[in-house]
Design a binder for these strands. Structure first.
Lengths: 120, 120
DNA sequence: TTGACACATTCCGATATAGGCATATAATGA
DNA sequence: TCATTATATGCCTATATCGGAATGTGTCAA
């Protein structure tokens, strides 16, 4: 099989830098496709494609506005992502992290020297 | 061009469900490859490949321990992800968000009914 | 109806996966 | 050195992109 479909969930959707930029822009309010494309330096079809992906994972919503289609942010889908990543917070914010790393480095150095430990 | 390489950054690395599972397991401490593979129901080569990706974006670190190679979590690379996603927090936590969405839904419903409106 | 404008979709080509399988490499012990 | 255990890699296939260009669709105005 190939890689999981990018349209499967928010994790995949935000793996694309351009899509992240789109989401950031949309924090400023609804925008039509052409404007997004122009501001991000991409072609209109490209913008439409990325917006489609974002729509499929429900990170944006659309509404017709005459000729235009205004895309708006729907950030609720980012909440699970935030929570998942947040589950690792203590592993980078606590000072023990740096300490732990230091300990690991020591162990490794010691091991590379003696090369006979099996106490893990 | 094709999609950005999955090895480019943490966003891409965690787009893969199995890699997320590996990271979660590693919160419990260092583990050898075979154990990870067994616990996650994947083959050893598969685990090695995923670990390689995680290594390349510095989300895990390795150290030799005799015959084994113990993989450990290095969550610092997740911090930028957490911060980026956190930038959208007010868009899902503020009550105005649900209100706004409700309004959007009303507009859209109304639009789909009359189907000849141009008052947007 | 026709033309113009805003978007969406399709087709194409190049590439990057992810998985399965076989195999190479590394470390240990007899 | 040889066998064993633990990992890493290489090769192959199917598939999922992403980008570009062309074209289809929808809306509005004259």
């Amino acid at each position: 099989m190939a890689r999981a479909a990018t349209t499967s969930d928010a994790f995949n959707a935000i793996a694309e830098p351009q899509r992240r930029e789109i989401l950031v822009l949309l924090r400023g309010g609804e925008r039509p496709v052409t404007e997004l494309a122009r501001d991000l330096g991409m072609t209109q079809p490209q913008a439409s494609k990325h917006l489609r992906v974002l729509r499929e994972v429900a990170l944006v919503r659309v509404r017709g506005a005459g000729k235009q289609r205004l895309y708006g942010l729907d950030a609720r889908g980012l909440r699970p992502v935030h929570e998942w990543v947040g589950g690792f917070e203590r592993f980078w914010s606590e000072s023990f992290d740096r300490l732990d790393e230091y300990v690991q480095e020591l162990k490794q150095a010691r091991q590379e020297e003696s090369q006979d430990d099996d106490d893990q």
